[in-house]
Amino acid sequence: MKIYKQETVQHVNATVEECWAFFSNPKNLQKITPEGMGFQITDFDQKSMYPGQIIQYKVTPLLGITLSWMTLITQVKENSYFIDEQKFGPYSFWHHKHFFEATPTGTKMTDVVHYGLPLGFLGRIMNTLVVKNKLKSIFEYRVTKVDEMFNSK
């Protein structure tokens, strides 16, 4: 299986603590996800993020097809980073690291996603034609929404 990488870095005009409070709360993910993704949390224990936490979603990423997605929070270091991994969903591999670093003017946020697709050769073609660009557009949308929420004050 081929593993791909998507990385996004963004500066936020807020403290690490403010960023952490927002981004470590799964309920806020819908606010920074494009509406066309049909993103909906279907199961979440409403607790602050912790290792072992399971979050389930429905997403409609392509062609109106709704998919179930289950992520597991594997690691958490408050105000520093957290990692989520897909347990069930559209990818054969999904590992997403979220880093928060204080800067003199706010917070540097870095998202690093490693992912793999099913179907071997067909998956590689789908990544080239669709998936890579779709992920890029989702993270570009997030950058825009985060700018609107935190950087336009």
Score class of each variant (00 low, 15 high):
K108Q: 13
V112H: 08
I41E: 02
P26F: 05
K27H: 13
N25P: 03
P61Q: 10
E140A: 13
M37D: 14
Q56H: 09
N25K: 10
Q46L: 03
V112G: 14
F121W: 02
Q46N: 03
V76W: 02
P34T: 05
M70D: 04
F22G: 01
I83P: 12
K108V: 09
I83T: 08
C19D: 04
L122K: 05
E18H: 02
V130Q: 09
T33D: 07
I138Q: 06
Y141A: 07
S137W: 01
P51G: 15
K31D: 03
T110N: 07
D45V: 01
T103F: 04
F100Y: 06
W94F: 06
Y81D: 10
T107D: 07
A102D: 07
L67K: 15
Q56P: 06
K58Q: 15
W20S: 09
F23E: 01
I125H: 03
R124E: 10
K47P: 00
Q46K: 04
S48E: 15
F88R: 08
T33F: 05
T15N: 08
W69P: 01
L62D: 09
H95F: 09
T105C: 07
G52D: 01
T15V: 12
Y57T: 08
C19L: 06
A21Q: 15
F88Q: 05
K27A: 15
F93W: 14
N127I: 10
T66S: 15
H98Q: 13
F100I: 10
S48H: 10
E78P: 10
V130R: 11
I138F: 13
T103M: 03
S80V: 15
Y50E: 01
Q53D: 00
E17I: 07
G106Y: 00
F100W: 06
M70G: 02
F44Q: 12
K108P: 02
S92Q: 03
I83F: 09
Q75R: 03
G64D: 12
K87G: 04
G38I: 03
K132A: 11
R124K: 12
A21S: 14
F82N: 12
T66D: 08
S24Q: 05
